Simulated assay, not measured.
Amino acid sequence: MVNPGDDIGLVDEWAIRSVPTLVLVEGGTEVGRLADGFQGGDAIEAFIADHA
């Protein structure tokens, strides 16, 4: 978890444009991104299942 106000370098590196943003990373490479505002637990679980 990153606070965008505290680590602007990571915000730039991962192109974070909205909060909250969930980025799934495997082996240093982005494999999925969810940046549609607040999502409930079911939506997050479905996103992870689709990208894991």
Rank of each mutant, 00 (worst) to 15 (best):
L22C: 14
D50Y: 13
G40H: 07
E13T: 12
Q39S: 06
E45K: 13
V31C: 06
H51I: 12
E13G: 05
H51C: 10
I44M: 09
L34P: 08
E30H: 00
I16V: 15
G9L: 02
A35K: 02
G28L: 02
I48M: 13
R33H: 03
W14G: 01
I44S: 01
L22E: 14
G41Y: 01
A52G: 10
A15E: 13
G32N: 01
P20Y: 12
D6W: 08
D36I: 08
Q39P: 05
L22I: 15
R33Q: 03
I16F: 07
G41T: 05
D7K: 14
G5M: 04
G5W: 02
R17H: 05
I44Q: 07
L22Q: 10
V19C: 10
I44V: 14
G41S: 08
A35N: 05
L10V: 08
V23A: 08
I8Q: 08
G37C: 05
P4V: 14
E45V: 05
L24A: 01
D7A: 12
A35Q: 03
T29L: 04
A52I: 12
S18V: 07
D36H: 09
T21D: 04
V19Y: 09
R17Q: 07
A49F: 12
V11Q: 08
Q39K: 06
G9N: 11
A49E: 14
G27L: 08
H51P: 11
V2P: 14
G5S: 08
D12H: 04
G9V: 07
P4W: 07
R33Y: 03
D42S: 08
G41M: 04
E30T: 00
G27K: 01
D7G: 12
Q39F: 04
V11A: 04
R17N: 13
D12V: 05
I16E: 11
Q39D: 00
L24T: 03
D7N: 15
L24W: 00
W14H: 04
G27R: 06
E26H: 02
G9A: 09
T29M: 06
V11S: 02
G9P: 04
E26C: 00
V25E: 03
A43K: 11
S18Y: 02
G32M: 02
D12K: 13
V11L: 06
D36S: 10
G27H: 10
I8F: 09
D42G: 07
D50Q: 15
G40C: 05
T21C: 00
V25N: 04
D36Q: 13
G28M: 07
I16R: 11
D36V: 11
G28K: 00
N3K: 14
L10Y: 05
S18A: 04
W14P: 00
L24Q: 00
V31T: 11
G9D: 08
G5K: 12
G40A: 10
A49Y: 11
H51V: 14
R33V: 02
L10W: 06
F38H: 03
M1E: 15
F47D: 08
G32S: 02
L10I: 02
P20W: 09
I8P: 11
D36T: 13
E45T: 06
